[in-house]
């Protein structure tokens, strides 16, 4: 390896910062849709972390061709590829639950729902 080490660990750090913004949105906001968006941000940043680990400098996408000897790591790609589609399926399930919660309580704010529960 040459001395050239940019971006070094910076990719992981930014991915972690993105993760924490997602976590903050999930924790700080009462609105259930906002929580789902926060989870999505968290999810995409975990994907970024994985894909960053799989990148090999100078290696193209792992589609085999002649006279290429070094490829990016295909394993994180496989794991994340399926995770994305599963992620949207579970997001849809969460959104369906929100629709039902809204029909039941007339609100999608967590604290309002808790107050209604306590009032009953």
């Amino acid at each position: 390896m040459s001395a050239y080490a940019f971006p070094g660990l910076a990719n992981y750090w930014i991915a972690i910062v993105l993760m924490m913004i997602g976590l903050y949105v999930v924790m700080a906001h009462e609105n259930l849709i906002k929580k789902i968006v926060g989870l999505n941000i968290f999810q995409v940043s975990v994907f970024v972390l994985y894909i960053s680990m799989g990148k090999v400098k100078g290696g193209p996408a792992p589609i085999l061709a002649d006279n290429i000897t070094i490829y990016s790591n295909p394993l994180p790609h496989v794991l994340i590829l399926t995770a994305i589609v599963v992620g949207v399926a579970t997001t849809a399930l969460g959104l369906a639950l929100i629709v039902r919660v809204n029909e039941q309580y007339g609100s999608i704010e967590d604290d309002d729902i808790r107050d209604l529960e306590n009032a009953e």
Partner: peptide, 28 residues
């Protein structure tokens, strides 16, 4: 980052379908 398959999926799923579903939830 040379993850073309993943990029393909994310563009279709994350930017496309998820947004449609969330807009549907907002409408409801």
């Amino acid at each position: 980052l040379d993850a073309v398959d993943v990029a393909f999926t994310e563009a279709a799923v994350g930017a496309g379908i998820s947004t449609v579903l969330m807009l549907g939830t907002l409408a409801l």
